[in-house]
Write a protein that binds this DNA or RNA. Structure first.
Lengths: 125, 125, 125, 125
DNA sequence: GTGGTCTAGACCACC
DNA sequence: GTGGTCTAGACCACG
């Protein structure tokens, strides 16, 4: 269901958050459906339960899920709504990054064309 | 000449390298012109000399500058050439980032249009 | 007759006790009238029978109800009397909470006025 | 500077957050002044560094402080502003609690008078 | 020295 | 079984 890269420089808990965010954004996990328990998933991923717990806590803070003591953890009803706002924030970061490249002397057209080719392989209008 | 943001999550030494790279790329520092000494600049920026030293060493490794014993540190003749290769690396990072956004469920067109508007204010075809 | 919020951070068995206490305090359940059986109510609320059992046992311990083997569980004659003492305990908790707010730097007058307005809508002296 | 109660049912990390919030709210810690390091304070309080780390992370999330890698952790400039908003939330919780007491059959006047006496010892207008 | 992350394993309350 | 909290100790990057 989920895979992580332990060698990555990106913290494991962030990878987990990212993976679940994707699954939710793509509709592969429905609202109110249960998330894997801390114990089982941490064993599956071969990571420490605390690391997963941290990821889940962060996801709760983001409004992506909620926990019911003694029962389990479930996807929030408005998880996708929360993700939309976060995606906008991501786009803003991308915008910032583009401007930094401009400042470092790369032409705007160069940047735009490069992105266009990257995303569409050059065959788009 | 240079400013840094100590509160940023980006390491100070990376910020310094980035600032000097920009100055060089934009032609605001000429080849063979001297860089501020570790001692004076570290005092100006109120940072640890070791941090600045690390930045300068990294810049030497990148081919952006060279040091002359007993004299000082100077911008390399081919510094701008070196920067071109680095800019390509930056573009690759941008590409990576765009793909991450795609994975998280944002439409390619949305990304491209957002960047286009950001860079050109919407007045470009 | 009774509703609970499984998402609440308040334990379910405490919610149940609280709901029944209210019903008794307001006179909506008379002394010696029967309480729903563990089996039926736990099914209605879709909770674990153990959880409801725990709530009932706690209520017996508080003197709110008593169980008759083979018959069922009934509201105590002096349930309302028992509740008066418990209400005092609640008031003490409220008092504690007010003092905490004071400690965190909120003015006493601010607290009192806020409560006054909340309870009486401002139309009381 | 700070004391905690290990026997309390309130989590240690919440106690720490509460203590620092008070110090900031009362102006006993100025903006941009450094907080004790994780290592030193955790030793002073005889708690695990991770527990304190968690408290500090939470405080960062609240906007009460910020961390500078390799340097230390400092009180935010607008920490007191952040606290004001949080205090309002606390007052709202108090209001909720008062209404619950009403629902359980306690008279509004009883509640108000009790709070008044608690806060002012009864000698206030 | 600092903060950030992770592991390993424990105890508790709740269901 | 579940989540919530805590301890003990490790490694890393940064300054």
């Amino acid at each position: 269901m989920i895979t992580i890269d332990k060698m990555s420089r990106i913290p494991i808990y962030e990878q987990i958050i990212s993976r679940f965010s994707n699954l939710i954004a793509l509709g592969l996990i429905s609202p109110d459906s249960p998330l894997p328990s801390v114990r089982t998933l941490s064993m599956q991923l071969a990571i420490n339960p605390n690391t997963l717990q941290r990821a889940y806590l962060e996801m709760e803070r983001m409004g992506l899920c909620y926990s019911v003591a003694g029962s389990g953890r479930y996807v929030s009803k408005d998880a996708r709504t929360s993700l939309v706002a976060m995606q906008q924030a991501e786009l803003d970061k991308l915008k910032e990054y583009c401007w930094e490249l401009c400042d470092s002397g790369i032409e705007k057209e160069t940047i735009l064309n490069y992105i266009k080719e990257s995303l569409f392989g050059g065959q788009q209008k």
